[in-house]
Amino acid sequence: MKPEIQMFNIIAGFFLVVGVIYGVVTDWTEWVGVIALILCAGLGAMIGFYLWMVARKLPLRPEDDLDGEIEQQAGYYGAFTPYSWWPLWLGIASALIFLGTAVAWWIIAFGALFGVFAVVGWVYESFHGEHAR
């Protein structure tokens, strides 16, 4: 996973350097840019560090091997739902909550209740009924 790790580390290094340059140029009086740029470095470093941690524990993937074959990538990728309506319900709940902040507070109560229904439904989607694992 070297290319991925390097890519995110380059993002981290670049924004760290730019953040410091920005600070020096603005004489450390303008904080929005300094913080945004340095935390952009954090954004890259976080993912880079995580991938590095994971890569240490894993063998080389087929895509890391120059002689790798497509067929070697077959196998288990993760647990996926074939389709799901829950994101739509959660989206409607979020929309109601935002509508409440804009129009009238009482709408939030309905949005929140509907949100509980949507979140519980989504989280437990694959954990009940005949396809439960």
């Binding site: 945004a36 935390l39 954090g42 993937r61 070697q72 196998g75 993760g78």
Partner: peptide
């Protein structure tokens, strides 16, 4: 469960999302 071991997609996705949360707090 398969011939290939690879990073767990949910875990990597969570880290990528958390890095965007970092920008929210930025």
């Amino acid at each position: 469960m398969g011939p290939v071991t690879r990073p767990n997609m949910v875990s990597v996705g969570t880290i990528v999302w958390l890095s965007s949360e970092l920008m929210f707090f930025a």
